[in-house]
Amino acid sequence: MLRPGNVSALRPAEQMFDEMLAGWAGQQSSRLLASRTIQTRESQVRRFADFCASSPWEWGAADVEEWTSELLSGTRPLTPSTIRAYQNSVALFCAYLIDGRYGWADQCMELFGTHPIQVCHEWNTAVHVADHEARPAVRPLTRGEVQALFDHADDHVDFARTSKRKGWLTLFRDATLFKVIYGYGLRRREAAMLDLHDFTRNPKALEFGRYGVCNVRWGKASRGSQPRRRAVLTVFDWTRPVVEEYVEEVLPRFGLADPAVLWPTERQGRIRLAHIDDRFADWRDQLALDRVLHPHCLRHSYVTHLIEDGFDPLFVQQQVGHRWGSTTALYTGVSGDYRNRVLRNALDNAFTSPPDDGSEQP
């Protein structure tokens, strides 16, 4: 929003920048972008401004290049996808500022004698050319590793419970949470935001009872849109007793004011994503698994194991909410035994002669 001409600003540069960001937020809200997307973009633009130590009408293309070099340096350089997201936020903000329909350039010329420019261009920003940019060491867990993780979690629960130690409820909650992440191929946020009523019956699979379908309401959004929804069908026979035991025997002990929350904290809130990461890292390290593995690897494991078990790839794609089969394929890391069985079957079918029935070939 532009200030009236008869109002003087005490800190004109700082206040102008705040007004620009507020106007940009309003523009994005008008496009129905998610508030989380808007807030993330604003924080990224502010981070760029802090690096430049200057105002948007003073930024130049060289600032983007120096900033990117800093993001790539240090002991923990950012990933290409993260850097591209940062650059995209700055580019979108600059595009908003130089749009004549909003009047920011004229206002800056009047107050500061210069105006914003587009500082991001095709020669100083990252281009998305690869479908998959994850670290090569990040992989699906093997079936044995998944089972070891679950057994290890259960051992922690049993020890804390039998020794009457404080915290066994949260340990039970976390152990069940990881089983649900794997059992339904969920992302962290999808799992953390689940409510009890998100589980419903599947009339075609009554053996799963009220846990035949997991209705995901907080799926990954696309281009800042609202979260995507999908229904994930239960496929593992162990899922029902695991969730039932937690819901009926453990969840009521939290004494929730809102009984719908599936993964509560002891302070009546929802479990944090950072806690999921930390708990997984603790149990992963105690099992001496690869340190690059993280909770999302359980989702990769779900895809891989369903494919190995013979589920149709289209079914698996719909279960995990991928728009394209190529994305699901990138998640898949089938074992050597599975590939060798497929190869052996193909070779046998191709080169094994059919039985001779005595008829002459034409």
Rank of each mutant, 00 (worst) to 15 (best):
H115A: 15
W123M: 01
A134Q: 03
F112T: 02
W104C: 08
E66Q: 09
I98E: 08
R101V: 05
W57P: 00
E58G: 14
A126I: 13
I98V: 15
Q39T: 09
R36F: 00
T125K: 06
L78V: 08
A85G: 06
D131H: 12
D50W: 09
W67F: 15
N124T: 04
G113I: 10
Y96Q: 05
E58C: 15
L72I: 08
M109G: 01
P136R: 03
L92H: 12
A25M: 05
T125V: 14
H121S: 00
A34V: 03
H121Q: 03
P80M: 09
F112K: 06
C52I: 14
D50R: 15
C120Q: 00
G74Q: 05
W123C: 04
S35H: 02
L78A: 13
I38Y: 02
V129R: 08
Q107Y: 15
M109C: 10
N124Y: 07
A25N: 01
L78Q: 09
D63G: 15
D50N: 15
P77H: 00
T114Y: 03
F48W: 11
W57R: 00
A91Q: 10
L33E: 01
W123D: 01
A95T: 08
S55C: 08
M109P: 03
V64E: 05
W104L: 09
N88L: 03
A34M: 05
R47E: 12
E70W: 06
H128T: 06
E70L: 12
T40W: 02
L71N: 06
F93S: 01
W24Q: 01
G26Y: 06
N124A: 10
L71K: 12
H121G: 00
A91S: 13
I117N: 04
A105F: 04
F51T: 14
T82F: 00
D63P: 13
H128P: 02
Q44P: 04
